[in-house]
Nucleic acid binder design. Structure first.
Lengths: 122, 122
DNA sequence: ATAATTAGTCTACAATATAGACTATTTGAA
DNA sequence: TTCAAATAGTCTATATTGTAGACTAATTAT
């Protein structure tokens, strides 16, 4: 078990970096959340509405994981009703580049995939 | 509902290409499978062993989806015991580029993520 | 007094994934 | 002959995960 810069214990789950990163951002929601934060700081409910079909529980969990991994920051303002803002952290910012390469590919190949895809319940 | 080149009906799920692509490859296993096929054609059981912690059912399902979307091909040889080979199709091949950009990022930032990460059950 | 607002949490239920037994068919060994 | 081995899955009972929507606390606006 190792320690980070702040002398906290941290995990080093997989010897394989791909696995380690994918286990976190390779889920249904992480990329969508990061993409939503690309241009703006966002509040919880705004994200919830923007993404549309995520449950509050999953949004909450995914945000916590992303924060814990250093992709985003969470800032609480001492107000009522509460104001909590999520923003990309340095790591999240640097992740935009490969993520957008992926998204660009998706854009370019969207039609090809739709054409290849037969109707089936898979 | 539209038709593809072979005059089959196909789905065009989302107006948003990112969603449409992510719904398919943004799961726990697709990227790992595609990565496994990068250099070699592979058989079912070989993939199962190589990935290690995927259940046969999920491997089977994910392969079907990847095939259905045109990322991979499935070739059955008339032998006993059966021989079924999975390989990257054109779309899967073209997907390697953005995927490897992502993987390279993962490699480069693996340590930073581990350092940022505190031990928690998230 | 009451409603509206926010960022979540909680709970009962629904959907999804897992492990591991099972299948059919042939070859090769005892 | 009879048995084991091999392959590509499927099936089923169980375990894990996700969902919808009610709920909370605190304050402002009506």
């Amino acid at each position: 078990m190792k320690k980070n810069a702040k002398n906290e214990l941290f995990e080093y789950d997989h010897p394989c970096p791909i696995r380690d990163v994918l286990d976190r951002i390779g889920d249904q929601w992480s990329l969508l959340i990061l993409k939503s934060l690309e241009h703006d700081v966002m509040r919880f409910n705004t994200l919830h509405k923007e993404i549309g079909d995520i449950s509050r529980q999953m949004l909450s969990r995914t945000l916590k994981r992303l924060e814990n991994d250093g992709y985003i920051t969470r800032t609480v303002y001492a107000q009522v009703p509460p104001r909590v803002e999520y923003a990309l952290a340095e790591l999240g910012l640097s992740f935009l580049k490969p993520m957008n390469t992926l998204i660009q590919w998706a854009d370019e190949n969207h039609e090809a995939i739709c054409r290849a895809r037969k109707i089936q319940n898979l």
